[in-house]
Amino acid sequence: MAGVSTIVGIVLNGLAIGMLLLLVASGLSLIFGLMGVVNFAHGSLYMFGAYFGLVVFDRTGVFVLALLIAPFLVAGIGMVMEYLTLRPLYGRDPLYQILLTFGIALILDEVVVLVWGPNALSFATPAWAGGVLNVAGAAFPAYRLFVIVLGAIVAAGVYLFLQRTRYGLVVRAGTANRTMVEASGINVKRAFTVMFAVGAGMAAVGGVVAGPMLSVNPAMGLETVIEAFVVVVIGGLGSFRGSVVGALLAGLAQSFSSFYVPAASSLVIFALMVAVLLVRPGGLFGDPEAGH
């Protein structure tokens, strides 16, 4: 049997993985909730966040600067993408939106290969988070603790944005009944663009913090978007609460299985998703009709 400190280590590790997933998955879920668009290119936005962060960090050596600049750049890319490509498709079969964002993901991934090359790049851990902390007897990298805290802060911020601001109200109302909100004279189209930018920015924050934890490579976008989809489906499409729970569950499941059954660690979240879908077809917190 593993001791308490081992378990604490596994749990903390799971939370750090979960927070990364949360940053990507919640944007994905919100975009789906509001616009009914499954954004395959979301992982590519996350990847762009990582690469932009790497460039800024390499040039300036200030990690916080990377964390501030990259998300704004990526949010801009997201806005342009939404305006030019998704807008013409809102009235059409959702199938075309999936196909379109899939195509955009292909393009963005190739752009990364062209600009930064096909090999993985290393992203140094910022000096102030390079140490190892002692948590309940478990040695735990300080940087991962920082990821957990930052993820929690961003998630709380988005939660407050959704619950307490006027735009959050529009987003939530738009998720529930878009036509009704439009009929009340609110510019839902603009809310779409803003929401898309917020989601892209969150994914970029995820990308920057993921940099020092994992390597930065051109395949990270598609890998992550698949995992984020799994998280969103576990939690229920369009539900912010669902993506929080789904992400943490998936992170913990991955962390525990990579300690006890390493061979199954990449499988476990897919198995979790299949199990959840068969018991609750709409995900844990989702509306079963949402994805139809």
């Binding site: 489906v233 990449s266 998703m273 299949v274």
Partner: peptide, 23 residues
């Protein structure tokens, strides 16, 4: 399931196959 959920669960099945073959 249908719609997006169907698309995602079929994707998951294929990834399960991938990891099984890989491991």
């Amino acid at each position: 399931l249908s719609g997006v959920y169907f698309a995602m669960i079929t994707l998951a099945f294929s990834m399960v196959g991938y990891f099984v073959a890989f491991e």
